[in-house]
Design a protein around this nucleic acid. Structure first.
Lengths: 243, 243
DNA sequence: AAATTAATGTGTCGTAAGTACATATTTACT
DNA sequence: AGTAAATATGTACTTACGACACATTAATTT
């Protein structure tokens, strides 16, 4: 690290990087917080307050407290930023290149989380935070674009095997909504008949015998995820092969 | 952390945990170094030098240096311990529970690596290090049993999709050796005819038109992995579905 | 009220892949 | 020369995948 970055450390960024000093390695968590709206997958971002990245957005993260478990730190970031505490969180990868943070050495453990944008408990400070369609993001602060892409890649793997996608939907949803969401995540169109066949084989869903409302067309039936699959923690189930 | 553990820190463990103090979080890498011998998957372990874990073995790891990339740290551990520098390494997960290390707060980034035990460059200090069949390991120091299991689980996923298994074999190998290795990793027996069919469909191998020697039975043909798949870094290929 | 629009809901058939399984062949060993 | 043990190979059955078309329902427009 150069004298210049040490200097920066003592001035502008003192609050945020208080765990950092010349000789120590800082550890943070970064969360890729994903929601689904208007047929698009969106990620929650904040405008970077670092001069080096002026104008760029960054993921939400924080330093890990000395008496805080790793997962607890990312739960805390999520709770502080969204008000939600019953969320799906998955650790993806740790990034630690020497120069990834301009103010010093920071290693970051990254998570992605899936939240339902229609959840009533959701409380966002929209002056600070912004939802961005993931497909429109070209550049982020730090190495956060790489982190985002890595998390999305992992999410694509996960949805093929595990019933995690339902964390992005309200409790009741139609098969069309579910299929559109799969299509948004996987970036491809799926055949409706084959999709329904495969989903029904999985036996993940309960037919609620209710119809959707307020759609400008024939309403579809509503379904919900079976209770046994509703745990927010990762649990293995048989793969769902969609392509 | 209690006064007692702080005390220990100042005495017995000073060298190994020199990056640790009461207020800081230490960062280490731990490597699950895997080899294949006698139809068994084996992991390289060292006897723990911590009093809390006397008699137990632990994985090989070290603290990350302030000017060292994350991957570089695990490459260094591997190079120092095995003499090898052309190895397959994959980051798996980061473990950071508060109490996982008795001397203080240490977060560890874990990797698994696959090495060929018949590699002539291999230089092991067998006074210190020991190969243990992974299936016989019941308990390890720290949370290393959990780390080992997590890595093995990831390895099982990987070998289904990517040609990484060949890093455990010498350059030339027979289909029987390859199949036995898959069986050892996956923990199940495979049908020989179906196995060969699937491998040949993958088009990963070159028939060398050579025979194996020194086997107490009819020798099989030798194959080698095609050059384009020999990169040690992770690269996606089409899945190999063995079950 | 009738016609239009746009989505839901369902089934079949051809193809590809997966699984179970048996016999002849080659080499080493005795 | 005979035996043992592993290599090498192919087929029939079943399951899963992919492409594809039409009738139905409710909201909207005329």
């Amino acid at each position: 690290m150069t004298e210049k970055t040490l200097q920066q450390l003592k001035t502008a960024e003192t609050e945020k990087i208080s765990h950092l000093d010349y000789f120590n390695i800082g550890i943070s968590v970064d969360c890729v917080i994903l929601g689904y709206d208007a047929k698009e997958l969106k990620v929650l971002l904040i405008k970077s307050d670092m001069q080096e990245f002026s104008g760029l957005y960054s993921l939400l993260g924080d330093f890990i407290k000395p008496d805080e478990d790793l997962d607890a730190a990312s739960y805390r970031v999520l709770k502080e930023r969204t008000g939600l505490d019953d969320v799906y969180l998955e650790q993806v990868r740790t990034f630690g290149n020497i120069n990834r943070h301009p103010s010093g050495r920071v290693i970051t453990v990254t998570y992605y989380s899936l939240i339902d944008l229609r959840n009533h408990k959701l409380q966002l400070d929209l002056n600070e935070l912004h939802w961005h369609p993931v497909n429109e993001i070209k550049k982020l602060a730090f190495d956060h674009k790489l982190i985002l892409d890595t998390c999305l890649q992992r999410l694509r793997q996960q949805v093929m095997d595990h019933p995690v996608i339902f964390n992005l939907l309200p409790e009741k949803f139609s098969l069309r909504e579910l299929q559109s969401l799969y299509e948004a995540i996987l970036g491809m169109e799926l055949d409706r008949r084959n999709f329904r066949k495969k989903i029904s084989i999985k036996d993940w869903l309960v037919d609620l015998d209710e119809m959707e409302h307020d759609v400008p067309h024939r309403p579809g039936k509503l379904y919900t995820l079976k209770k046994q699959y509703r745990n927010k923690s990762m649990k293995a189930t048989a793969p769902l092969q969609l392509v």
